[in-house]
């Protein structure tokens, strides 16, 4: 079923006692995408990821990974072997060294002895911990531990990566390092699902995003697509002349939704559905119509607020 999607879930539901954490959720992620899952704390991101990675059993619904029906109990080892899952608390073993830790997981994943050495070096290189390979894990910094966890997640060359809040709690430099690593992985062809409660963590990285709120996936699509559909553009217009003429002209433009007059001035706040070039078009038409303008300012709503607003609207 649907082999074109690397990850597909239909009717996915998870219930804890009488509370639904993920509610009848449909999700389709194409192969090679970096999909950002955004939602406030408690939105159900972790629960969703745990189900997709097979840690938790869904109450209802089906999960297909690369077209194969997937469940924790299924003996589908080929697909199980190609999943990498990084939980939000990335636990590690303090008593091992960096090298021994990766070596342990490489062996668990049955990487043959001939390739193991090379693979561990490759991964250490990627996460820039090559010089720390002999240190005990307990002595690493938080960012290093986090990268080491990521290394553990990718040591067996998975094709599906599930990363739960990988950048929360990191300083900006660590975040940048982390983003660079993700880019490399994406270029290597992995399908990656990353969750975060802050959009700005993901905006640069993701090819598409989904917004979760109260267990629902309220919106999904490419970042640009969502911006275009939901971002509210505003234009502030200040005129020297007659307000009525301006209003008459505005009515002619189909992209203008509504406006309000800022009291005590000749300023208008216009809600506008078009993008940048449409606003240039509007400006030209106003000038052609002889409206004398002193101010024409095009602003776009901040992404963060759009997502917040969106979530609340749709879920209620």
């Amino acid at each position: 079923m649907r082999p074109e999607f690397a990850i597909a879930a239909y009717g996915l539901t998870k219930r804890f006692d009488n509370q639904i954490s993920v509610n009848d959720l449909d999700l389709e992620i194409k192969s090679g995408e970096v999909y950002g899952l955004i939602g406030a704390n408690g939105a159900g991101k972790t629960t969703l990821i745990r189900m997709l990675a097979g840690v938790e059993e869904p109450t209802l619904g089906e999960i297909y990974l690369h077209g194969n029906l997937f469940s924790r109990d299924s003996n589908n080892l080929t697909i199980k072997r190609r999943i990498g899952y990084l939980p939000d608390d990335y636990p590690l073993y303090d008593d091992l060294t960096v090298w021994d830790y990766l070596d342990y997981f490489a062996r668990l994943y049955r990487i043959p002895a001939s390739r193991r050495h090379h693979r561990i070096y490759e991964v250490l290189d990627l996460i820039q911990l090559g010089n720390k390979r002999k240190s005990l894990i307990v002595n690493l910094s938080r960012g290093m531990k986090q990268r080491l966890s990521l290394a553990r997640t990718i040591i067996h060359e998975p094709i599906l990566l599930f990363l739960d809040e990988p950048v929360s709690g990191l300083d900006p430099i660590s975040r940048r390092q982390f983003r660079d690593i993700i880019k490399v992985l994406q270029e290597a062809g992995m399908t990656i699902l990353i969750s975060s409660h802050v959009l700005s963590d993901l905006a640069e990285l993701c090819t598409s995003v989904g917004i979760m709120e109260l267990g629902f996936l309220v919106e999904g699509g490419s970042l640009k697509d969502i911006c275009q559909r939901f971002a509210r553009q505003q234009i502030i217009i200040n005129t020297l002349g007659d307000l009525a003429t301006l209003e008459r002209e505005l009515k002619k433009n189909s992209l203008v939704r509504e406006w309000e007059v800022i009291s005590g001035s000749n300023r208008l706040k216009v809600n506008f559905a078009g993008d940048n070039s449409d606003s240039a078009e509007l400006l030209r038409s106003l000038i052609l119509a002889g409206v004398s303008l002193t101010e024409f300012q095009y602003t776009q709503e901040d992404l963060e607020t759009i997502f917040l607003k969106l979530g609340h609207q749709q879920a209620s």
């Binding site: 990675a53 097979g54 840690v55 080892l77 199980k80 072997r81 999943i83 899952y85 939980p87 608390d89 636990p91 590690l92 073993y93 997981f105 668990l108 994943y109 049955r110 553990r152």
Partner: peptide, 13 residues
């Protein structure tokens, strides 16, 4: 308690 058991449970071993 540390949560490391689930990684092992998910390996092909």
């Amino acid at each position: 308690q540390r949560g490391t058991l689930s990684f092992i449970q998910f390996s092909p071993q």
